[in-house]
């Protein structure tokens, strides 16, 4: 049977986007609903958006990837076409435990889209490739220790 949560999130985000468009303010109940669905990630993601931590990096070939500056100062890479983030919380809570729908970085990407404060950065294809490769190496390097980290 179909799952309900994704469409709930879609609708929630859409309503938030509509609220931003119409009144430039997200009503309290939508914020609380966001918190209802995402728990503590909601506040953390909103704080990331408040701090304009989300950057969309694109290259001439059309590749796009998001980078989110985490609260710890680390940057995490999130794919634009599917739900993936390089943070440990994603590995743990989303991938391994399936406890969370999104990590706070991925949620922040959505929120930054609807709040229109996603930063834009255009880089060359090579730069983007290097970025992705570097990230892959980092993940591989940290693969053995990721379980010890729970905080993204």
């Amino acid at each position: 049977m179909a799952v309900a949560l994704p469409e709930v999130v879609e609708e929630l985000l859409s309503e938030m986007a509509a609220a931003v468009r119409d009144s430039a303010r997200i009503p309290d109940e939508l914020l609380l609903s966001l918190e209802f669905v995402f728990g503590s990630s909601a506040i953390q993601a909103l704080d990331l958006v408040d701090r304009e931590s989300v950057t969309l990096i694109s290259s001439p070939s059309g590749r796009r990837v998001y980078q989110v500056l985490g609260s710890s100062g680390k940057t995490y890479t999130c794919l634009a076409s599917c739900h993936y983030c390089s943070c440990p919380a994603f590995s743990f809570s989303v991938l391994r435990k399936s406890d969370s729908l999104l990590c706070k970085h991925l949620l922040a990407i959505y929120l930054s889209q609807l709040l229109r404060n996603c930063q834009q950065l255009h880089v060359s294809d090579k730069q983007l490739t290097d970025l992705l490769m570097e990230d892959t190496r980092r993940i591989k390097g940290a693969a053995g220790t990721w379980t010890s980290k729970t905080e993204a």
């Binding site: 879609e10 859409s14 599917c82």
Partner: peptide
């Protein structure tokens, strides 16, 4: 029973594509 949710798709925010 727990139903898994795919990661292979992203959420579509309607208003983002409507305006």
């Amino acid at each position: 029973s727990r139903r898994n949710i795919t990661l292979a798709q992203t959420f579509r925010i309607k208003d983002i594509t409507d305006n």
